[in-house]
């Protein structure tokens, strides 16, 4: 029953991501853009998992794991680069 509205949920999540992109376009500092990027990646995780449910293919969940981990490390790298000017 729930799968009949999941397509509309995906559309709603895309609209929410567009709102976050508006903030990333406007944002006065880099940190606002990083916050907006965090929201967009969270929405991407939700879309991946909804497609995994609709397709019944559970390997997408591993993709979501790696995606969350990579985004976390990426955020840390961006902020370290901003503060110190180099990563390594």
């Amino acid at each position: 029953m729930i799968s009949s509205i999941l397509n509309w949920v995906v559309i709603g999540v895309i609209v929410i991501s567009l709102m976050a992109i508006a903030r990333a376009y406007k944002g006065p500092t880099v940190l606002d853009r990083v916050v907006a990027m965090n929201i967009i990646t969270t929405n991407v995780v939700i879309i991946i998992l909804i497609f995994s449910y609709l397709d019944n293919s559970y390997y997408y969940i591993d993709v979501a794991f790696v995606f969350v981990l990579g985004v976390f490390i990426g955020t840390l790298c961006i902020l370290k680069l901003l503060r110190e000017g180099h990563i390594i």
Binding site: L31, N38, V45, F65, L79
Partner: peptide, 28 residues
């Protein structure tokens, strides 16, 4: 089996999301 993996993903997000917020606030 799928539910357990999704629950692990919830725990994962619950751990990483506030940490990222803390790092952003600290950088600001």
């Amino acid at each position: 089996a799928v539910g357990v993996r999704l629950a692990l993903l919830i725990i994962f997000i619950l751990a990483t999301n506030p940490t990222a917020a803390h790092v952003i606030a600290r950088a600001a």
